[in-house]
């Protein structure tokens, strides 16, 4: 088995044994979205209007919530040091951890999203595009987040620092993710937005593990 698969399997294994972490992220996502009908009021047309934005923002925050622990626990118990000393490029290690993060947080968010879309009275035609946009967008969130998670290692109050570092970088994903859903609901095609989301993903795919690995080396030095 390759190093990538071994690290991925180990992280999934760890996430499964500590099942609460994943579950809490999804619970946070659900509760954050559920707060909006209470705050905004139950008028269904207003909820339908803001549904894509609310779901995307909540997904963003939920994904970020779990990022802090992406490298933190391994850093604290010395595992990260050892991972950096294996005959595997550190970039591959970062990539494996990002994939594990997406599988344990991004994917459950996508599964929960349709339920919340019903709650927010999202028009029927928006469901498929919401899922497609999330599938294209959430891996980017994990990728960009890995840079932030690597940069905050060793700092106190890492969680807040992480949100300051990462949330601004999430804005493009948010804009095109929401506008893809809005476009389809208003009867237009969303091809352009999806292409841009895909473009951002393919730019982040090689770039983020590389930057994240550099940040890890910095943290371990």
């Amino acid at each position: 088995m390759t190093g990538f698969m071994l690290i991925l399997r180990r992280d999934l294994h760890l996430a499964m044994r500590q099942g609460m972490d994943s579950l809490m992220v999804v619970m946070f996502f659900v509760i954050a979205v559920v707060l909006f009908p209470f705050g905004v009021g139950p008028e269904s047309n207003i909820l339908a209007r803001i549904a894509p934005g609310v779901i995307w923002v909540a997904a963003l925050l939920a994904a970020m919530l779990s990022l802090e622990r992406l490298f933190q626990t391994d850093y604290e118990d010395g595992s990260l040091e050892l991972l950096a000393l294996q005959p595997i490029a550190l970039e591959i290690t970062v990539m494996a951890k990002v994939v594990a993060h997406w599988l344990t947080t991004g994917l459950p968010l996508i599964v929960a999203a349709p339920l919340l879309a019903v709650l927010m009275n999202l028009p029927d035609e928006g469901f498929v595009i919401l899922i497609v946009a999330l599938v294209l967008g959430t891996p980017t969130l994990s990728l960009i987040g890995a840079i932030g998670a690597a940069l905050i290692l060793g700092s106190r109050r890492g969680g807040i620092l992480l949100s300051l570092l990462v949330l601004p970088l999430y804005i493009p994903v948010l804009i095109f993710g929401v506008s893809a859903v809005d476009a389809v609901i208003s009867g237009f095609e969303a091809k352009a937005q999806l292409l841009i989301l895909g473009g951002i993903f393919f730019a982040a795919l090689p770039l983020c593990p590389w930057v994240g690995a550099a940040a890890l080396r910095q943290a371990l030095d």
Binding site: L14, D74, D77, G78, S79, E81, L82, L85
Partner: peptide, 9 residues
């Protein structure tokens, strides 16, 4: 390498 920590999950 054996460092200060014992990385046992």
């Amino acid at each position: 390498y054996i460092g200060h920590h014992d990385p046992v999950k």
